[in-house]
Amino acid sequence: MAVSNNITACLNFLALICTIPVVATGLWFASKQGAECARLARWPVAILGGLLLLVALAGFVGAYWNRQGLLAAYLFAMAALITLLLALLVFAFAVTHGSGAYDVPGRAYREYRLEGFSGWMRGYVAGDPRRWEGIRACLAASDTCKKLTMETAFFIAPEQFYQSDLSPLQSGCCKPATACGDA
């Protein structure tokens, strides 16, 4: 077996081992039927892990036993997966471009509006009222506000609230005249 085939076989064997946790995570997400927060990641993670597993297996078998057909299929499949992941990366950057933040006079924090985000993001979040309720339920179920309580454990008077440099999550969890996390 040629040196390049040995290197390709070793790299694909490592990739094969690394895809096992990805597939397991996807199947674990798929088994969590009640978790609304993981709904979007259920099958895409399992499918992506399965595709990576098959591509790595084809690359390993093709390189180890010098099967030219499998190596050619491996190269085309890997090119397609890389192109798909690059397209997903560009889409993610385009969708999340812009923060929606604007300065509020007399306040140390910034306000956030949906109009500052991409059109796709606005349509996705605001297009279906149930979707926003699902996002809100995920934040509430994640104990984010309780974790923020441990980081910023103080009673917020209205003056403190308006002059505090809070993150968007902190300002959503903390309200004037309440303890953070109790809102």
Rank of each mutant, 00 (worst) to 15 (best):
Q33G: 08
Q33N: 10
Q33C: 07
Q33I: 12
G34M: 09
G34T: 08
A35G: 06
E36D: 11
E36Q: 11
C37W: 15
C37R: 13
A38R: 04
A38C: 07
R39Q: 10
L40R: 12
L40A: 14
L40T: 12
A41W: 09
A41Y: 10
A41T: 10
R42V: 01
R42Y: 00
R42K: 08
W43Q: 05
W43H: 10
P44V: 01
P44A: 05
P44Y: 03
P44G: 05
V45P: 02
V45I: 08
V45H: 02
V45Y: 04
A46L: 09
A46G: 05
G49D: 01
G50Y: 00
G50W: 00
L51Y: 04
L52W: 07
L52K: 05
L52A: 06
L53G: 09
L53R: 06
L54M: 05
V55E: 10
A56S: 12
A56K: 01
A56Y: 03
A56F: 02
A56E: 02
L57C: 06
L57N: 04
A58M: 09
A58Q: 04
A58I: 01
F60W: 09
F60I: 04
F60L: 08
F60E: 01
V61G: 03
V61W: 04
G62S: 03
G62T: 07
G62C: 00
G62D: 03
A63C: 02
A63G: 04
A63P: 00
A63M: 03
W65L: 13
W65R: 14
W65C: 09
W65Y: 14
W65T: 07
N66I: 02
N66C: 04
R67P: 00
R67L: 11
R67V: 08
Q68T: 09
Q68S: 14
G69M: 07
G69D: 12
L70C: 04
L70H: 00
L71W: 07
A72Q: 15
A72R: 15
A72P: 03
A73K: 05
A73F: 11
Y74N: 08
Y74K: 03
Y74F: 13
Y74T: 08
Y74A: 03
F76R: 13
F76W: 15
A77G: 06
A77T: 07
A77L: 10
M78R: 12
M78N: 12
M78E: 14
A79Y: 12
A80L: 14
A80N: 09
A80G: 13
A80T: 12
A80K: 06
L81G: 08
L81D: 08
I82M: 11
T83K: 07
T83Q: 06
T83H: 06
L84C: 13
L84G: 14
L85T: 13
L85D: 09
L85F: 11
A87G: 14
A87S: 14
A87E: 12
A87R: 12
A87V: 12
L89D: 11
L89C: 13
L89E: 14
V90F: 15
V90G: 09
